[in-house]
């Protein structure tokens, strides 16, 4: 199923994102892992947000509780949105507790997504760690929907353990495809896991791509992104062709409040997807 290619630029709704949340209704809730659910929501009336591009995020408002930045994992032309939420605190717990028929507020889409057009003509390496897969999922579909425009496509997905993998059934479908190489790995596993075990960077030597002509999209916990980006750079991928998606606490999401500042960038306005070359000085990790 290749339902969500990135919309051509001309099709993007030119309306600015709304300042007040638009009500959406929860259509379904899928349990992904013990602490993570996927919500499918659709507009409750005629108003809806513009169609998000791969890598953009929305502010989801749990009424009476608060708002959180959540990446768009899928967006249909009919206005349906898919978001995957991990419970970490007040708002995400409230969002993950929603049930079909409940209402949730949505404003967005915000931020700059994955520069898919820039990757055309070369190889693409996608590295996702844990909950980094949801924001990368629409990018993978966008690439697959214009498959002939790219060289080799390698996707590496890592999680802490098999029970932390999201979109398990979809991964199996991707793995069966012959035009994309999909590797999954976990940091540790029991004997009931027949896949690869090892941190996500251990799968990189197996990935086939031509480094100078490769664009990489990386999303996951910050240490994982830093180590992956460094491993890609060591392999010869130009640092300005390695893109990472940053997470910072957000309030306004429109570049006004400064809550999401990271180095010289406001993650909500200039990111969340940013070039590794620009971020590297701020992503210091002790040598391991």
């Amino acid at each position: 199923m290749l339902a969500d290619p990135s919309p051509p630029a001309a099709a993007i709704d030119p309306e600015p994102p709304p300042l007040a949340p638009i009500p959406y209704v929860v259509r379904s809730v899928t349990t992904e892992t013990p602490d993570t659910v996927t919500l499918t929501i659709r507009p409750s009336a005629t108003r809806r947000i513009a169609t998000p591009r791969p890598g953009q995020f929305n502010m989801l408002y749990a009424f009476g509780v608060g708002e959180s930045a959540i990446s768009v994992s899928r967006a249909t032309p009919e206005g349906e949105l898919v978001h995957t939420v991990r419970r970490v605190g007040k708002v995400t717990n409230a969002l993950a507790a929603l049930t079909p028929g409940d209402t949730v507020g949505v404003r967005g889409p915000y931020g700059r997504g994955w520069p898919i057009a820039e990757a055309r003509g070369g190889d693409v390496v996608v590295i996702a760690g844990g909950l980094g897969l949801p924001p990368l999922r629409p990018a993978v579909y966008a690439i697959l929907s214009q498959r002939e425009s790219f060289g080799r496509v390698e996707v590496i997905y890592g999680a802490r353990s098999p029970k932390d993998l999201v979109y398990y059934d979809e991964i199996q479908t991707w793995r069966r495809r012959t035009d994309v190489r999909f590797q999954t790995t976990v940091d540790a596993a029991g004997r009931d896991w027949y896949g690869d075990v090892g941190v996500v960077t251990t799968r990189l030597p197996d990935a086939r791509f031509d480094p100078p002509k490769t664009t990489a999209f990386v999303c996951g916990p910050e240490i994982m992104m830093t180590l992956s980006a460094k491993a890609l750079a060591d392999r010869g991928v130009p640092r300005d062709r390695i893109w990472v998606s940053m997470e910072r606490n957000m309030k306004c999401a429109i570049g006004l409040c400064g809550h999401c500042q990271f180095g010289p960038s406001f993650v909500c306005r200039d990111g969340p997807v940013l070039r590794f070359s620009a971020l590297e000085p701020f992503l210091a990790v002790k040598e391991v």
Binding site: G129, G130, G158, A159, R160, D164, D187, A188, V199, V200, T201, G220, P221, I223, M224, L227, V288
Partner: peptide, 8 residues
């Protein structure tokens, strides 16, 4: 790297 628990 595993000990760093990069997924935390």
């Amino acid at each position: 790297i595993q000990l760093l628990d990069i997924h935390a």
